[in-house]
Design a protein around this nucleic acid. Sequence first.
DNA 1: GTTCCACTGGAAGACTAGGTTT
DNA 2: AAACCTAGTCTTCCAGTGGAAC
Length: 340
Amino acid sequence: MIEDARVLRAEFVPHELEHRDGEVTHLSQVLEPVTRGEPAGPAIITGPSGVGKTCVARYTVEQLREQHLDVASQYVNCWQNYSRFRALYRVLEGLGKTVDIHRQSTPHDELLERLRQYDGPPCVVVLDEADQLESADVLYDLHALSSFSLVLIANREADLFAGADDRLRSRLRGSERIGFDRYGIDQLTSILQARARWGLTEDAVATDQLRDIADAAAGDARVAISILRNAARRAQRTTAATITDEIVTAAVPAGRSAVHRRTLDTLTPHQRAVYEIVADARRIDPSTLYRRYREAVDDPKTDRTVRNYLGKMVQYDLLVAEGTSRDRTYRVVEPAADEG
DNA sequence: GTTCCACTGGAAGACTAGGTTT
DNA sequence: AAACCTAGTCTTCCAGTGGAAC
């Protein structure tokens, strides 16, 4: 059934990108100065999840590097590297400049100094999930250095600028914008077809089933691929020769929630306890929430810390906060909910 | 309209973990 | 071994906000 599991992973970047020619061309044009050794203006890529933002960025940068030897690049996932230190560290890592600073007691300044001294070929830095950075300092740091060209990826541009001061905001205002829309059913179906062709045995899945998966994924390619992967695993387990309608139906919920569950796994035990309390109550006010939290765990953190947790989980789309003052309530985001 | 106060979130500093230097 | 770094986490303190009660 499954011939090449790599192809069924969401992070996989195919050799040919479908349905995103315009966006690839646009980004290539923005980054074109880099091929002449000149700095390129920042590009801001926005759009809902699972529409190929990361894929297009990585693909385009990869193409650029294939055509021009004198271009460096580094991809940084700001979700995992959300602090200034970690983000800058990852950039240096890509340049191979971290050999002797595998130590924690290296100050920010040292990292910045190394970036400043960088005299290699122009470097394209892709900051994925850039809205997850805890401070916009990183954007400021890198934008100030002409060797580095920024590609910023975020769901919404507003989130990206939320943490930025006016100075940075006005600097980024002139950035090139590339907006992504959700895939249509036909587009999603043909994306799945390509993955099935490379990743599954021949005739393992029919176009009708792929259409059903595409329909269930509501324009989100990550969810669609996750469902396909889940379906293929189920078929393999039951030694079915093909992916049937029944298998698809069974695979949809698991495929949908896979993305959500992965973020839940990143929570600490205390954060998890807070999340569970909110999940148990359909809707909960802050004081009740904190009282229950204190009862639920040993050695509870302060309410201020719990507020930080809540803010973080709202950022991560795990919780929704409604109301601004005394009317504030929290509730969980349902895994199957359509992301905005 | 005024007051109350639950709630938010910024700022500053203490504490911890984990590394380096002497 | 002890002294000394730093980033990251958590706490303490508090000003500001805006529904709710009066």
